[in-house]
Design a binder for these strands. Structure first.
Lengths: 221, 221
DNA sequence: GCAAAAGTGTTACTTTTACACCCATGC
DNA sequence: GCATGGGTGTAAAAGTAACACTTTTGC
């Protein structure tokens, strides 16, 4: 009987130039009123991946989010009531203005909010450590796999894409080199649409050519 | 109560130009008499990492082996008796002639043997899939972190090192380019010792300069 | 016209690839 | 002396890094 098997999700979003992570305020002991990663017990008849999808849905209202397993944590001291084994996942989602206000649909948490990954509150359990693990993984990953697109809307400008890279890597990149490299990959489709509503020259929009994207990166994990 | 929490270890070794993996023949149902990864239940009062060390020790007689967590698998159908959650680890060890004969020290398996990763027998549970995951991870990993040294004895020749890379990557490498690259890293210490007992020109031995090695790669995982 | 961000090329440097012959040793 | 693997350099190609100005737009 698994009453000690949970899932925790590090859900990343990108907004206003910052990489954000979704946290929930707990409504249960232990750590009642603390901020924590969205997560919950896996049901006994439920596949782990389904539990992740469920938790993502309950917290964001979205399905089909990019997700990936991060690690299993099973320390005897990570939970005051003894070993609770958790499998941590990280997920990437498009965070537009409609989604920035999140209302959780479960009772075990009071509210959910996006926090900048560099301005996190104190967190329950070992959740800070889990977020740090995710960040490292994400940093490594955009070096060899262009997961950054999962954080952007379907149509985006090259500057937006560059900001995502800069937020993840934590450093400035050269504009010309960045554009050259991205366009050279060959999986960006140039649209004849442009940004709207900006008080300066509107930037061209691009979208991902999924066919070419998968051809170039299908061998990666 | 965790009676359904196990560890499985993919233990890699290198011998005779082949990348090998250690398998055990099960002496218990289910899958009695099948080959399987070394693994066992984690005790309730035991840290997961300690369980891995224990299982590595029981199977190889060695401590302080390089190891790393790979993934958690919890499929409802992976075990005939219902969900058994396993955390898979992969480990790398030096496999010299003294260690090629392994005698397991537990009763839940009958014998242990090294198999070439490309000539595996049928395996119990989802262990084939776990080995494939490990192999992919190992392939990716030697691209950015020189873990290959964990598979070699303290003193080795550059050709031995190249054979390890070739076995992992599954392709031939250029000898001159390979040596240039390895020596450029700067963490190989040239010894004034040479191979013994070969009927051709004896190759120079090298060893890892751990100080420089860690300086160059401490930021990796 | 000015503020704000878009867009654009060239050069130097580093890294990677391709490639073939002589050398030292044990028998 | 011959078989076996050890050891070595160079040139082309590709990729990465540094760097500054003109253009477009809304106000």
């Amino acid at each position: 009987m698994f009453t000690n098997f949970t899932i925790d999700c590090v859900i990343f979003g990108f907004h206003d130039g910052y990489l954000k992570v979704l946290l929930t305020e707990r409504n249960e002991y232990p750590f009642k009123d603390w901020w924590a990663l969205p997560g919950f017990f896996v049901n006994n008849d439920e596949e782990m991946e389904d539990a992740v999808k469920r938790i993502l849905y309950e917290n964001t209202g979205l399905k089909d989010i990019y997700m990936e397993q991060l690690a299993a944590l099973a320390g005897l001291k990570r939970h005051p009531q003894g070993r609770i084994l958790t499998v941590a996942y990280f997920a990437l989602m498009q965070l537009d203005h409609a989604k920035i206000k999140v209302k959780p649909v479960t009772s075990y948490m009071r509210q959910a909010n996006w926090f900048s990954v560099h301005e996190l509150p104190d967190l329950a359990f070992d959740h800070k450590q889990i977020i740090e693990l995710s960040l490292e993984k994400l940093k490594r990953k955009i070096g060899y796999s262009p997961v950054a697109f999962e954080l952007l809307p379907e149509k985006f400008t090259l500057t937006q894409l560059q900001l995502v890279y800069e937020a993840i890597l934590g450093k400035k990149l050269d504009k010309r080199n960045f554009r050259k490299k991205m366009l050279n990959y060959g999986f960006l489709k140039e649209l004849s649409e442009f940004q709207k509503g900006v008080s300066y020259r509107a930037a061209r929009l691009y979208k991902l050519d999924k066919r070419k994207f998968h051809k170039a990166f299908s061998h990666e994990d």
